[in-house]
């Protein structure tokens, strides 16, 4: 059991990635603080399952881009399950809009959901981790922290911002025994990529742009998060790990593994 008695905070528990983290890390003995957009109702079965397995679970529904709500959440969660050992920030709001025509409301919605929440949660979790001189922070970002989407610039800007937050936190919290890393996620089996674009062909035939033509799953994501959350990853800090099966390496269409 790699996470026995560790408290894991998952910022978006109702999502596909949130569910995968919950089940995988529960098998390793973790307890949970879950921020759930449905207040737990959409994940009731999952909660039952991990509770039966022995995990303590605290469920909240906070706006993570507001310190006041996050501080309340951490205070209540501390009473219920303890302070945070592992922060998994998996906010991933996409709203297609072009640089030329996007409105301010859309831009701010995406930036706040993905980037401001990362800052606020890092600050709150960082205080607790600094106090106990240990912790792990994992941001699930995207290959679009590097590669433009051609359809959702605020999304990639938000992921670019989180990339730098991670590097900063790797320094300042690194001095308190905390490891901070990002996972730059590519397309997965479960969800079609939400980036329709007339500007880039990146997602045309995307399955075959993964060299082995096999897409990853949320299970693969959870395995990497488990590694980063465990003691075995103690020397991994300030890193961006691309999890895309080699998708972003693709260059030559004619060599795709397409039978």
């Amino acid at each position: 059991m790699k996470l026995k008695e560790k408290v894991v905070f998952i910022t978006e528990a109702d999502t596909g990635s949130g569910t995968a983290f919950l089940h995988r890390l529960a098998l390793e003995g973790a307890h949970f603080i879950l921020n759930s957009a449905s207040g737990g109702s959409e994940i009731a079965e999952n909660l039952d399952r991990v509770r039966r397995g022995g995990s303590n679970v605290f469920v909240a529904n906070a706006d993570l881009s507001r310190s006041i709500e996050v501080n309340d959440l951490f205070r209540e969660a501390e009473q219920a399950v303890g302070t945070v050992d592992v922060l998994i920030h998996n906010a991933d709001l996409v709203k297609p809009a072009l640089v030329e025509t996007c409105d301010e409301e859309t831009f701010l919605a995406v930036m706040n959901a993905n980037a401001k929440s990362a800052f606020i949660c890092t600050q709150a979790a960082g205080r607790q981790m600094r106090a106990k001189q240990s912790g792990k922070i994992i941001y699930v970002t995207s290959i679009h922290a590097e590669k433009p989407t051609g359809s959702s610039f605020a999304y990639s800007a938000s992921k670019g911002a989180v990339k730098m937050l991670a590097r900063e936190a790797a320094l300042i919290l690194g001095r308190s025994g905390v490891n901070v890393n990002t996972i730059e996620l590519g397309p997965l089996e479960e969800d079609a990529p939400p980036f329709p674009s007339r500007l880039t062909t990146i997602y045309d035939d995307y399955r075959y742009k993964v060299p082995d033509a096999v897409l990853g799953t949320y299970g693969d994501l959870a395995e990497l998060a488990l590694y980063l959350a465990s003691d075995g990853a103690r020397y991994v800090n300030g890193a961006d790990i691309r999890l895309d099966g080699g998708f972003l390496m693709h260059y030559s269409d004619r060599k795709m593994k397409k039978v």
């Binding site: 930036m111 433009p148 989407t149 938000s158 670019g160 989180v162 730098m164 500007l199 880039t200």
Partner: peptide
């Protein structure tokens, strides 16, 4: 400040392909 510059990096890349 660094977050803002990380965001500008992607803003610039997106703007380049779009414009």
């Amino acid at each position: 400040y660094a977050m803002s510059k990380g965001a500008i990096r992607m803003l610039g890349r997106e703007s380049a392909i779009e414009l």
